[in-house]
Design a protein around this nucleic acid. Structure first.
Lengths: 140, 140
DNA sequence: CTTCATGCAAACCCTTTGCACGTCG
DNA sequence: CGACGTGCAAAGGGTTTGCATGAAG
């Protein structure tokens, strides 16, 4: 479960310490997005002795490696989603937090159109889609 | 300059108090995005007696009315941009902070494609474009 | 006059940092 | 063994809240 993250970290030459393994397992056990606070709560619930700081430090590390990405929820909270380094946008279920990764589906056309109209050179963009996953849609 | 915001607030039945007028003027005097901290600094620089809380409260109010929108900068800071209630996306210059508003330029095609692929129903989205405005591009 | 907004300060997050100790390889 | 990671606690920044006072309509 948590092997994916650990393997990727290992490959990146990152030390696989005890706390890092435990936090990776917590992340793997969640599905969908999670906040730093979620992990901190999980850790304290299970009485792992890991400190807040270690969790934030690992999240930074994972983000650097592109293994998680930080998304800003509509309510302003910061969350993280596990993801493949190459994929780029996320679709998040507002009901259960499930995540789907969306590869470029024509966003380039949008950016170049915006660039043409505005005269800006576009260097990067952030697209976040919010909706309901198939499960939550039918459950309601 | 600050009339636009004030007029819109008035129409919404919001009391036009002294502090609100002053803060609206500060916002009008900025061009491009700004943070709450920017306004707080402006206010203290000019020794207006307005408190932090009032600034945050007005920003909330303006956001409720759709007169400003909160954007999350790539570095994680929260900023606000003044905008028309109907327009929807923003292009922000990473060099000078200038803002261009971008009306739908085919983003619907992207969302429906993403929806088709993932099975999610899409309720909302957030698109932020980052680049360089014509001025900053030629200045460099 | 009544309702609502304000300033101030304290409270509250969330996140980062400094440091002595422990662990990994 | 040496470099690096860790926990803890404290510091830091941004944002919110409680409350007595003051202004708006």
């Amino acid at each position: 479960m948590s092997d994916e993250l650990l393997r990727a970290l290992d490959q990146a030459g990152v030390r696989l310490t005890g706390p890092r393994r435990e936090i990776a397992a917590l992340i793997a056990k969640r599905n969908g997005h999670f906040t730093a606070a979620d992990l901190i709560a999980d850790a304290s619930k299970r009485r792992l002795g890991v400190g807040r700081a270690t969790i934030f430090r690992l999240l930074d590390l994972l983000a650097e490696q592109g293994l998680v990405e930080r998304v800003d929820l509509p309510d302003g909270r910061h969350a993280y989603v596990p993801c493949e380094p190459s994929h780029h946008h996320h679709l998040v279920c507002v009901a259960c937090g499930a995540i789907a990764e969306v590869e470029d589906c024509g966003i380039d056309a949008v950016t170049s159109e915006a660039s043409r109209r505005s005269g800006f050179t576009i260097e990067s963009h952030r697209l976040e889609l919010f909706g309901r996953c198939p499960n939550c849609r039918s459950a309601n």
